[in-house]
Design a protein around this nucleic acid. Structure first.
Lengths: 127, 127
DNA sequence: ACACTGTCTCGACGTCTGTCGAATCAGACA
DNA sequence: TGTCTGATTCGACAGACGTCGAGACAGTGT
């Protein structure tokens, strides 16, 4: 308890809109740092895209060439960054994404189409 | 040259939409890692929100309680992550944001309001 | 009660990171 | 040319990070 403090910050004016104050940077940086490892980025994706909104650690671990303790460590990092929630159910532990925090980070990085375009259509949608 | 290789990856289906493949994670993680430091997050913001789209290192350095070399080191990190571009003009060096990469990261984190989702309003929009 | 399975914590290790001061490089201007 | 200022690179150091094996903890089932 008392961990997972990160990202209490009010909200999220785009990075490029106005200068991010030091406290906001200090609160948000840990979340970015947590995503700054390939393994954790994949874990985050597997959790966020899981059927039913949650996924068992037992499905996460075998997807990597890493030991259980190492995966557990990475999950802890994601948890402490406030990006995911864990929930033990019987023998297994399920992880669930916290869309709010993810949304804050996305909003912060959103590139405002400086000039005309005001619509949030800034979703490259990829081709 | 030859540095700043990061983020050549095609594009950006939201993290929560489909599982991010290992190569994509490996390519994108360095960018998140670069933003995972409070100082660099502030630097990135100052650069991205600068008037005229660019800002002089001489305006960046005095904004922190850090030495010149340290700021220079952080700027190099942002450069190598492909997040900014540097441009020397006479005595001064100007930094400019690369909105494309920023947009990719934002798209990746975007929370799709996928039908039955606990969280309403995907874009907190801040109040 | 016991054993078994799944997950986490602990301690250790080598590597990477953030910071600094000193030295170097790039232009401007006498 | 020489000197000055702004920015980067270099070398060093303490601390943080990613990884592992061993052990502890939580539930299930016999």
């Amino acid at each position: 308890m008392s961990k997972q403090a990160a990202v209490d910050v009010r909200c999220c004016p785009p990075l490029s809109e106005r200068r991010v104050p030091a406290e906001t940077a200090a609160a948000l940086a840990p979340a970015f740092k947590a995503l700054g490892d390939p393994v954790r980025l994949q874990l985050m994706s597997m959790i966020a895209s899981a059927e039913g909104g949650e996924i068992c650690v037992c499905d996460l671990t075998p997807a990597f060439d890493l030991t259980g303790p190492t995966i557990s460590h990475h999950l802890k990092t994601l948890r402490e960054a406030g990006l995911v929630d864990a929930d033990r159910r019987g023998t297994w532990v399920y992880y669930r994404a916290r869309p709010t925090v993810l949304g804050q980070l996305a909003a912060l990085l959103t590139v405002v189409p400086t000039g005309a375009d005001a619509a949030p259509a800034a979703r490259p949608e990829c081709s």
